[in-house]
Amino acid sequence: MHWKLFATLAEAAGDRTIELDRDTDETVGDALDTLLDAYPDLSAEVLNNDGEVADHINLLVDGTAVTALDGLDTPIDDDTELALFPPVSGG
């Protein structure tokens, strides 16, 4: 699947766009685990002390917030675009 990272998260990973093999990943949660395994420095930026996605982190699935879908259980396919970013700060 395709990942897009922005701002501090892109800097922590060292990449703005990341292509990962989906293999057995069926959900957004699986894909996130795969991403964080491949880029361990991202974990500290993305997860809270309980190992969950921190409240201020945005996770989008094809442009829609994962919180408006089925959360980490949202299904993905090979073409899904996932995006991960800190609070927006335009203007």
Binding site: F6, A7, T8, E11, H56, N58, L60, A83, F85, P86, P87, V88, S89, G90, G91
Partner: peptide, 26 residues
Amino acid sequence: RLKDEVPIFKKETTADAEFWVHERSE
């Protein structure tokens, strides 16, 4: 609404430092 909702990110460069703005505004 633009500042709250639109995925745009701001990095600030001052005479002393460079930082992503959300890091200082939280």
